[in-house]
Simulated scan of single mutants.
Amino acid sequence: MEILAIDVGGTKVDMGIVKDGKLIARDRFLNSPSENIVNLISSYIKDKDIDGVGIGVAGQVDYETGTVIFGGNIGWENFPLGRLLQEELNVPVFVENDANIFALGVWKYELGSKPESVLGVTLGTGIGGGFVYEGDLLRSKRGATLEIGHMVIEAEGPACTCGSHGCLESLAGGWALEKWYSERTGEKLTGAQIHERARSGDKEAIFLYQRLGYYLGIACASLANILNPDIIVLGGSISATFPLWQDIYEAEIRRRAVPPVKDTPTVVSTLKEAALLGASALVEQALTR
C-alpha cells in the first residue's frame, strides 16, 4: 500500500510517500493559504499511483467529514479540506488533528504498539495533544478532543488565538515564547534563535523556557490525573529544548499529580517522521478495518 502522508503545521507543510510502513520520500514546503493547499498537494503527487491520503492539521478537525473546523494558527475555519482533495485526487482522503497523528505514529512505529496508552504532546507554534488507547485514537464528533493548548491555566492570563485568555498555548506555545521574549528584550527572534540564546546562557531566554516548563508541568499533571497514560511523549520543535526545562516540569508533575500517576514517564520522541507515519497509519486503519 502506497500512501501520501501530510502534516500541516503553523509554519510549514510536510509531505511524504509511505510504502509498507516506510517513508520513501519526504519534502517540506512553506505553509500555503487554504485556497492553494489543494493545488500544492495535487502537484506533489502528479504521476504517482497512491492508494489514499492521510493528513494531520493543526486545529480542530471533523474526522467524519474531513472539515477543518478551526485552525487558528493557519487561518482556516470550516474549510472542507477532505472533500476538496477527494474530488481532486479521486482517492480516499482522511483528515485528522496533527497531534493525533503524531501520537498514533509514536505508538505504532516508535513504541512498537506495546504500551496500552500513550499521551502525545506536540510543542510547536501551538500546542496539541493526542491520546492512543489500545491502538485507537480518542476522538469526538465535534473535533475538539484533547485541545490541550486551550486548557485555561491562568484565568486572567494573556489573550490566545482562540479568543480566550490564559490558555496553555498563550503561556507556553512557540508564538507566545517569541512574543514574550520580544516584549522583555525589545528583540524579535525566532524560536530557534531564542533556543540558541538560552544554550549560550541568555538569562531572559532561560527564564522563559523555565516558565514554559512550569506551565507544561501543570498541564501534563492534570492530563495524567485524567487519562492515566502509560507514557507521555513530547514532539514538535520545542521538544528539543526539553533539557532546559525538564527539572521544573518534572517537579510540577510530582507536586500536582495524584500518587498513582506521579511517576508517569515523559520522554522526547526521537522519531522525526512520527507525524507522517501516523498519517499513513490513519489511512491503513481506515482502509483495512
Results as ranks from 00 to 15, higher is better:
residue 41 I to A: 00
residue 241 T to L: 04
residue 77 E to M: 06
residue 145 T to Y: 07
residue 201 G to S: 08
residue 137 L to G: 00
residue 161 T to C: 08
residue 261 V to D: 12
residue 3 I to R: 02
residue 250 E to K: 15
residue 241 T to P: 06
residue 98 D to C: 05
residue 277 L to A: 00
residue 24 I to C: 11
residue 211 R to W: 00
residue 5 A to K: 11
residue 78 N to E: 15
residue 258 V to F: 10
residue 68 V to E: 04
residue 207 F to C: 03
residue 163 G to I: 00
residue 62 D to A: 12
residue 217 G to Y: 01
residue 166 G to Q: 13
residue 138 L to G: 06
residue 227 L to F: 01
residue 285 Q to T: 05
residue 64 E to T: 13
residue 258 V to W: 07
residue 32 S to Q: 15
residue 278 G to S: 03
residue 122 T to N: 11
residue 202 D to Q: 01
residue 107 W to Y: 12
residue 31 N to F: 06
residue 250 E to Q: 14
residue 171 L to S: 09
residue 170 S to R: 09
residue 63 Y to D: 14
residue 89 L to C: 05
residue 257 A to P: 06
residue 28 R to I: 13
residue 139 R to K: 15
residue 89 L to Y: 07
residue 242 F to V: 11
residue 73 N to M: 10
residue 84 L to W: 02
residue 161 T to H: 14
residue 91 V to S: 10
residue 131 F to E: 14
residue 42 S to W: 03
residue 153 I to N: 08
residue 39 N to P: 04
residue 242 F to C: 08
residue 182 S to E: 12
residue 149 G to P: 02
residue 217 G to E: 00
residue 60 Q to H: 11
residue 171 L to R: 09
residue 48 K to Q: 14
residue 84 L to A: 05
residue 235 G to C: 09
residue 259 P to S: 13
residue 153 I to D: 12
residue 98 D to P: 08
residue 282 L to A: 10
residue 203 K to N: 07
residue 255 R to W: 07
residue 146 L to P: 03
residue 187 E to W: 00
residue 190 T to E: 06
residue 176 A to P: 10
residue 4 L to S: 05
residue 128 G to T: 13
residue 31 N to R: 15
residue 176 A to W: 03
residue 261 V to C: 12
residue 264 T to S: 07
residue 237 S to K: 09
residue 172 A to V: 10
residue 59 G to A: 04
residue 103 A to M: 04
residue 229 P to V: 09
residue 152 V to N: 13
residue 153 I to Q: 11
residue 28 R to L: 11
residue 137 L to E: 02
residue 38 V to I: 04
residue 236 G to I: 02
residue 99 A to H: 08
residue 5 A to E: 06
residue 269 S to M: 10
residue 74 I to D: 04
residue 36 N to G: 06
residue 139 R to Y: 08
residue 48 K to G: 07
residue 89 L to D: 03
residue 184 R to K: 12
residue 271 L to Q: 11
residue 245 W to Q: 03
residue 236 G to H: 08
residue 201 G to E: 02
residue 155 A to L: 14
residue 234 L to N: 01
residue 113 S to L: 05
residue 232 I to P: 03
residue 88 E to W: 03
residue 215 Y to Q: 11
residue 181 Y to C: 05
residue 286 A to H: 13
residue 247 D to L: 03
residue 34 S to P: 06
residue 209 Y to H: 05
residue 199 R to G: 01
residue 66 G to A: 03
residue 259 P to C: 12
residue 78 N to R: 15
residue 35 E to G: 08
residue 75 G to S: 13
residue 231 I to G: 09
residue 193 Q to Y: 01
residue 8 V to Y: 06
residue 25 A to W: 10
residue 188 K to C: 04
residue 195 H to G: 05
residue 258 V to E: 10
residue 266 T to P: 02
